[in-house]
Simulated scan of single mutants.
Amino acid sequence: MRNQYLTSRGDICYEFVLYKTRTQAQADRECAVNGGNLVTVKDKRVEDFIGDMLHKLRYNGRVWIGLNDIATEGEYHWSTGKKATYLNWAPHEPTLFLSTIEDCVILDVKKHMQWFDTPCHLRQYEYICEYSIEQDVSRCPADLIRNQYLTARGDICYEFVLHQTKIHTHAEQECAVNGGNLVTVKDKSVEDFIGDMLHKFRYNERVWIGLNDIITEGEYHWSTGEKATYFNWAPHEPTMFLSTFEDCVILDVKKDMQWLDTPCLIGFHHYICEYREYPLVTHLCH
Rank of each mutant, 00 (worst) to 15 (best):
N3D: 11
Q4S: 13
L6E: 15
L6Q: 12
T7I: 05
S8N: 11
R22L: 15
T23M: 13
Q24M: 14
A25Y: 13
Q26H: 12
R29D: 06
E30V: 08
C31A: 03
C31S: 02
C31L: 06
N34C: 14
N37W: 07
L38P: 00
D43C: 04
R45T: 05
V46D: 01
V46M: 07
E47H: 04
M53G: 07
M53E: 14
L54Q: 01
K56M: 15
Y59K: 09
R62N: 06
I70D: 06
E73N: 13
E73C: 13
G74W: 12
G74I: 08
E75H: 13
Y76V: 02
W78I: 05
K83C: 10
N88T: 07
P91S: 11
H92C: 12
E93R: 05
L96W: 14
F97K: 14
L98I: 10
T100K: 09
E102N: 09
D103H: 10
V105P: 00
L107R: 01
D108C: 10
D108K: 15
K111L: 15
W115R: 02
D117K: 00
T118M: 03
H121G: 06
R123I: 10
R123F: 07
Q124S: 11
Y125T: 03
Y125K: 02
Y127A: 08
C129G: 02
I133F: 00
Q135P: 08
D136L: 08
S138W: 12
A142G: 11
I145R: 07
A152W: 00
A152V: 05
R153K: 12
D155F: 05
C157G: 03
V161L: 15
G180V: 04
N181M: 15
N181I: 15
V185P: 00
V185Y: 02
D187W: 06
E191L: 10
E191S: 10
L198A: 03
L198C: 04
H199W: 12
K200E: 11
R202E: 12
V207L: 05
V207T: 02
I209Y: 03
I209N: 00
I209D: 03
L211V: 01
L211A: 07
N212C: 10
D213V: 08
I215W: 08
G218K: 04
E219P: 06
H221G: 05
H221D: 12
W222N: 00
S223C: 12
G225F: 08
G225A: 09
A228Q: 04
N232Y: 10
P235F: 01
P235N: 08
H236C: 12
E237F: 09
P238F: 04
T239M: 13
M240D: 12
T244S: 13
C248K: 01
V249P: 00
V249T: 00
D252I: 07
V253F: 06
V253H: 08
M257D: 04
Q258T: 11
W259Y: 03
D261P: 02
L265I: 07
G267S: 12
F268N: 13
C273D: 04
Y275W: 05
Y275S: 01
L280V: 13
L280I: 11
V281M: 14
